[in-house]
């Protein structure tokens, strides 16, 4: 008799649980997929396409769909770490197949060589190049993400990617990198300075 009771009790329990779950599934459904938004926030928005996707947002979508998180050279290890943190995945080293981490750069047009073809303007993902047909173009340095997508299309090869110069206001206290200036001075004997421990 006890086992009949057991069967009945368990089935009733299961039935009720099933009903509740059926109700909850419809009542508390969550819409949307905000994770893509969060991933996109972490990506550097260089829009360089080195990850193999046309822009940061498509890559964010791809990561949310399960792609690797180590395909973003401009973001570098810091971005990988933060993505790993967000997604609870393992932080891997940057995938060398997609390029290496580099210093921040900015595109500069050698203006005397520019022929005004507008090819770079069309290539710039963030509209950071201004100019018109047959007019000289120039890069708005503050808006340039350093993606270097404009370099290749230029028919006259007049765009250089130059490292961002360090300014005192944005100096990061790297004492090892203080330039030793060889200032010609009769009183001073020039010698290579020995760097103290930073």
């Amino acid at each position: 008799m006890s086992w009949v009771l057991g069967i009945i009790a368990l089935s009733v329990l299961a039935l009720v649980a099933g009903l509740i779950l059926g109700f909850a599934a419809i009542r508390f459904r969550v819409e949307g997929d905000p994770i893509v938004e969060q991933i996109d926030q972490i990506l550097p928005q260089t829009q360089c396409g080195q990850c193999g996707y046309p822009g940061c947002r498509p890559y964010a979508q791809a990561i949310a769909d399960g792609d690797e998180i180590n395909k973003c050279p401009p973001g570098g290890q810091a971005t990988i770490d933060r993505l790993a943190d967000l997604l609870g995945r393992e932080a891997k080293p940057l995938d060398a197949a997609h390029g290496a981490e580099d210093v921040k750069k900015v595109a500069v047009i050698r203006e005397d060589e520019c022929i005004g073809c507008t090819k770079c303007i069309q290539a710039c993902p963030v509209d950071a190049i201004i100019g018109a047909t047959r007019q000289m173009h120039t890069v708005i340095a503050d808006e340039c993400t350093g993606c270097d997508l404009c370099v290749e299309p230029c028919p006259v090869d007049c765009i250089d990617m130059l490292p961002l110069p360090t300014k005192p206001e944005r100096w990061t206290w790297n004492l090892e990198q203080i330039p030793v200036q060889n200032i010609t001075d009769a009183a001073a004997t020039t010698e290579t300075s020995e760097r103290g421990p930073a």
Partner: peptide, 9 residues
Amino acid sequence: AQRARVTTV
């Protein structure tokens, strides 16, 4: 790896 073009030329 193949790099994607964000913009069309």
